[in-house]
């Protein structure tokens, strides 16, 4: 997917969000929409302007800024695309290791989230930490498990013991609690 298409998708999502929020805002009372309404309208305007801006320019000028043009800076000199994101974007297809890919990055966050919701924070931390360390080949499985227990123990000490936060609450523990009465 070209960089322009990706940029268009993101700007399009922003536009859709602003339009949805604008639609909802219109339904509120005049006082409740006093600030949100103009902001939502501005958001829509900025999103449309960004979409127009990035589609009426050459691909190599995608990173030239409107601010540069307004302030009449030397836009051609500033044109080189040097953001980390673009570099990462270009580098990804060359990366041999799938483990270092974006889907995996999103996947690991989703996995930790799912674990946390299902089994509760502390068990989730143990499983996730051990699993990540083992899969990334940072440590042997035994050492990964040790690190995971150590991490969970520290978190329990800081949050559970000191602050009294319940760290075993998850969907499963809720269901089990109904049956086992603990």
């Amino acid at each position: 997917m070209s960089r322009r298409t990706q940029e268009n998708i993101v700007a399009g999502v922003f536009l859709a969000v602003f339009l949805a929020l604008l639609y909802m805002t219109v339904g509120y009372s005049s006082r409740a929409r006093l600030v949100p309404l103009p902001i939502a309208v501005l958001g829509v305007c900025f999103a449309v302007a960004q979409l127009l801006w990035q589609n009426f320019r050459a691909s190599d000028q995608l990173n030239i800024d409107a601010l540069d043009l307004i302030m009449k800076r030397d836009v051609i000199a500033k044109a080189p695309i040097d953001s980390d994101a673009v570099r990462a974007d270009e580098a990804q297809p060359q990366a041999a290791d799938r483990w270092r890919s974006e889907p995996w990055a999103f996947g690991m966050v989703a996995f930790l989230l799912a674990l946390l919701l299902v089994v509760g924070p502390l068990p989730a931390v143990m499983v996730f930490t051990a699993g990540y360390l083992a899969m990334s080949k940072h440590s042997s499985l035994a050492r990964a498990v040790f690190y995971a227990f150590a991490c969970a123990a520290v978190l329990y000490g800081l949050f559970g013991y000191t602050l009294g936060v319940q760290l075993n609450r998850g969907l499963i523990s809720g269901v089990l609690a109904d049956y086992i009465d603990f």
Binding site: L112, L113, L116, V125, F128, Y132, S136, K137, F159, V165
Partner: peptide
């Protein structure tokens, strides 16, 4: 980084949970 990612992510998620339980 391979050590930092799981540890920091765990602290972040547990911290997020701890703010309001």
């Amino acid at each position: 980084g391979d050590l930092m990612v799981p540890l920091v992510l765990s602290v972040c998620f547990v911290g997020a949970y701890a703010t309001r339980g």
